[in-house]
Simulated scan of single mutants.
Amino acid sequence: METTLRARIRDGDGDAFGQLFDAYARSVYNHAFRLTGDWSTAEDIVSLTFLEAWRLRGRVDAEGGSLRPWLLGIATNTVRNTRRATRRHAAALTRLPPAEAVRDFADEVAGRIDDAELLAVVRLALDSLRRNEREVLALCVWAELDYAAAAQALGIPVGTVRSRLSRARKKLAAATRDLEPRRRSGQVRDSRVPAVRPAQEGK
C-alpha cells in the first residue's frame, strides 16, 4: 500500500496526496505542538509541512515503507525555519527606532474645510501625489499605522515609508497653497461636487 502511495505521490497524484494528508496530518500536528508548545503555531506548521512535502514530492523513493518519518522530518525543519524567522523578525524590531508620533493633519485640514470648494482643493492636492505617496499617506495618517506596520503592509523598507510620507506632506502642503488662490478666484468650482462625495466616510 505504502509503495503504491509513494509512487503516486512522486508522480504528483493529488488524490494520493490527499490520502497522505488524511493519514498523517494529526501526527504532524502533534509533533509540531510538542516542538512549539503552541496550538496555533502547530496548525501553521501542518500547513507549511504539507506544502513543502508537495514541493519535494519528486524526492520520494517509489519503494519504501511509511512516509510518516519523511513528513515529520519536514515538520521539524519547518519549525526550525519558523523559529529562525521569528528570531530575525524580533531582532529587526529591536533595531528599529522608537515609533514616532505621526502628525495627523486630517483634523487640521478638516478644521479649515468650511465649504465644498475647499474640499475640491484638497482633492486636487491629493491627485498631485504619486500613487506610492498616496498609499503611504493613507496607511500612516488615515489608517494610523506606524512606520513599521506600513512598511510591512507595502513590502518596503521603513526608511522608504518615511521618505515617501515626508514627500507627500510637502507636496500636499505646497499644492494646497498653490490651489488656495484659485479657490478664491473660483477656478475650481467645477470640481466641487465630485470632491465632496468621497468625504462622506468621515475622514
Rank of each mutant, 00 (worst) to 15 (best):
K171F: 00
P157V: 13
L48C: 03
E108C: 05
E63P: 00
R57S: 02
A101K: 14
A199W: 04
C140V: 13
L126P: 00
S66N: 07
L5K: 10
P69T: 14
A153L: 00
Y147N: 03
R131C: 05
F21A: 11
A62H: 01
A125W: 03
E144R: 15
P157T: 14
L51C: 05
P97M: 06
E180N: 06
F105S: 01
A173E: 03
G18Y: 10
A116W: 13
V196K: 02
R130Y: 06
T4N: 14
T4D: 15
S166W: 12
E43I: 06
N30W: 10
A106W: 05
Q152T: 10
Y29Q: 15
T160H: 10
R192S: 13
G58I: 07
F33H: 12
F17V: 07
P194R: 07
A120G: 08
T82W: 12
D22E: 14
Y24H: 15
A106V: 09
D61H: 12
L72Q: 11
F105E: 05
E133I: 01
E144Q: 15
T176K: 09
D11L: 14
G111A: 15
E2N: 11
T94M: 14
M1N: 05
A175V: 02
W39V: 04
Q200T: 09
G18I: 04
A32L: 11
V79N: 08
D178F: 01
A16D: 13
D115E: 10
Y147I: 03
D22N: 12
F17S: 09
V161G: 02
N81G: 13
F17A: 07
D38K: 15
L67Q: 02
Y147A: 07
V161F: 01
G186S: 02
D44L: 01
L118N: 11
R184K: 06
E2F: 05
L172R: 00
K171D: 00
R162A: 11
T86L: 01
G186A: 02
A138P: 00
T86N: 04
G37H: 10
L145H: 14
R183P: 02
N81E: 15
R184F: 04
V193I: 10
V136I: 03
A199N: 05
A195Y: 03
R59P: 00
T82N: 09
L124P: 02
A42M: 04
F50S: 09
I156M: 10
S40H: 12
T94R: 15
